[in-house]
Amino acid sequence: MSEFTILDLLDLDLKEHNHLGLSCIAGRTGLSRKITTSKISRPGLPLSGFFEEFSNDSIQVFGRGEQAYLHKLEAEHNLASIERLFKYDIPCCVFCDGADPSPRFTALAEETGTAILKTDLLSSDFSRRLYQTLDEVFAPTQTIHGVLVEVYGIGVLITGESGVGKSETALELIERGHRLISDDTVRLRNISDNFIVGMGENPLLAHHMEIRGLGILNLANLFGVGAIRDRKQVQLSVKLEPWDAKKNYDRVGEGSMHDHYLGIAIPMVLIPVKPGRNIPVIIETAARNERLKKLGYYSAKEFDQSVLKWLESESARNMYNINEETH
């Protein structure tokens, strides 16, 4: 993210529990000011005249307490600290609880070209949502060449060289009832160093796919709204590569390989492609297996346990047979 302005914040398409409900009520000229940090400031202390350590680069959120204090200051005709607040290059002020600022405060904002936004949310709720939103905006991102699909609820990132059959594989998966998040370019975001979320680079162009021989297709129109998703956590990385007879592929499934994106490890499977191998079914199975692993069941390990148990019981029988013979 190179630049993020107040206007970009108002333009964000946030839904339901992420909705900020912001509208600009004054100081429109200030909408082009940049937001450079995900920190949020509650300007109680500055209003009381204490400006040390004032985080003037963050959004100033006025809750009930701050609003009541503003009223008190204005009633006492003590505007010095408010004027001083506006002298700083603050990004914008947000009034919560659906409250309106006083005409005097609005006039000051207009004079200095500082945007005043308003929301109906409670200040605590708003701060939490805003923090979450900004955290995501300023999260490290990386754009990669690949396809992101959701298979049985698992976000599967398919990568591989151009022409190895990523899009065709994704198309078959969608045909089988799974969902496309993005084809070709996937933007990955590191969310609080915890997990990776993938989405299309551009919401206008997402859910389109280029298939050699057919051209560009709109998947949402072709397969319906059930075949698409806007974003999804990446939980499994699938690497497709042309079959190499000399290479050792995982035959047991005990080894756990990982891919690293933006410093976060994602379980990875390497799938060799050759004619006759049904890649979509293999990916479906890998996704199911990943779900089992999340539930604590490891196919390969359990299988090995069964083998060990069986060998144990066989050797016990053999011991018995040997004893029979000697007596």
Binding site: M1, S2, T141, T143, H145, S162, D183, D184, T185, G200, E201, N202, L205, H208, M209, E210, I216
Partner: peptide, 18 residues
């Protein structure tokens, strides 16, 4: 373009550059 780097052999990639 800017912070975006895409594979030049992919049509959708090039278009998404905007």
């Amino acid at each position: 373009k800017g912070t975006m780097k895409i594979n030049g052999k992919s049509i959708m990639g090039i278009i998404t550059l905007g």
